[in-house]
C-alpha cells in the first residue's frame, strides 16, 4: 500500500522531508519507524491524517503519516 511519510525536525537529518513509500498490508507505525531507523524512544508526536496515533496503529492505503521527535515551544 502507498503511504506518504513526512519527517520533521532532527528526523530529517540523513533521511527526507516527505516521501511516498510502499508498505505491505498490516504495517504499523512502529514498522515504519523501524524501517527508517528512527529509535522508538525518540518518537514524540505521531499523526495519521492529522490525528494523533500510537505506535501499534496499523496504516491503510493512502494514509499520510507524520513523525516528529518530542518538541515544544510557545
Amino acid at each position: 500500500m502507498n503511504i506518504t511519510v513526512k519527517l520533521f525536525a532532527s528526523f530529517r537529518t540523513g533521511r527526507f522531508e516527505i516521501e511516498s513509500r510502499d508498505y505491505p498490508p498490516g504495517t504499523s507505525v512502529a514498522d515504519v519507524a523501524d524501517s527508517l531507523k528512527l529509535p522508538r524512544h525518540e518518537l514524540g508526536i505521531m499523526m495519521i491524517n492529522s490525528r494523533h496515533v500510537k505506535l501499534d496503529r496499523l496504516l491503510a492505503e493512502g494514509d499520510t503519516l507524520a513523525l516528529f521527535p518530542l518538541l515544544g515551544g510557545g
Binding site: F8, A9, S50, F68, L71, G73
Partner: peptide, 11 residues
C-alpha cells in the same frame, strides 16, 4: 519555538 509551525499545521 517556531518548530511548532509544522506540528500545529499537521494537527
Amino acid at each position: 519555538t517556531n518548530v511548532l509551525t509544522n506540528v500545529l499545521n499537521e494537527a
